[in-house]
Amino acid sequence: MKILISNQSELPIYAQIKEQIKEQILNGQIEAGTELPSIRKLAKELGVSVITTTRAYNDLEEEGFISSMQGKGSMVLSKENEFLKEKYLLRIEEGMGTAVETAKRIGMKEDELVNLLHKLWKE
């Protein structure tokens, strides 16, 4: 696991930690079943406050990336888990919804939009 905190970033530190762990889970660098370092250990290693790392882990758990068990630490969940999938589906729907709405507003046809999607997919 690799986490680099930037003081120049507009993102608060807890969000930087969250996003970087999330990214590594999604691209497979952190595999499902991996045990994450404890909140306190992570805080110590990064030189940030315990509340900050707690918040990052809480958010990750809420979003279904990890599961924390009392006294047992946090485990990375499978990307394939239903909860996560649903969440992503929702996000895709949202994104596509905006795309369709915008397309309609400028009078774009359905197949034109589908073609655009094909093109983007291949990039």
Binding site: R40, K41, A43, K44, G47, V50
Partner: peptide
């Protein structure tokens, strides 16, 4: 010193 402090609280 900061490191020492973080060590100090690490057992919660």
């Amino acid at each position: 010193v900061l490191q020492i402090l973080q060590d100090y609280i690490s057992d919660g």
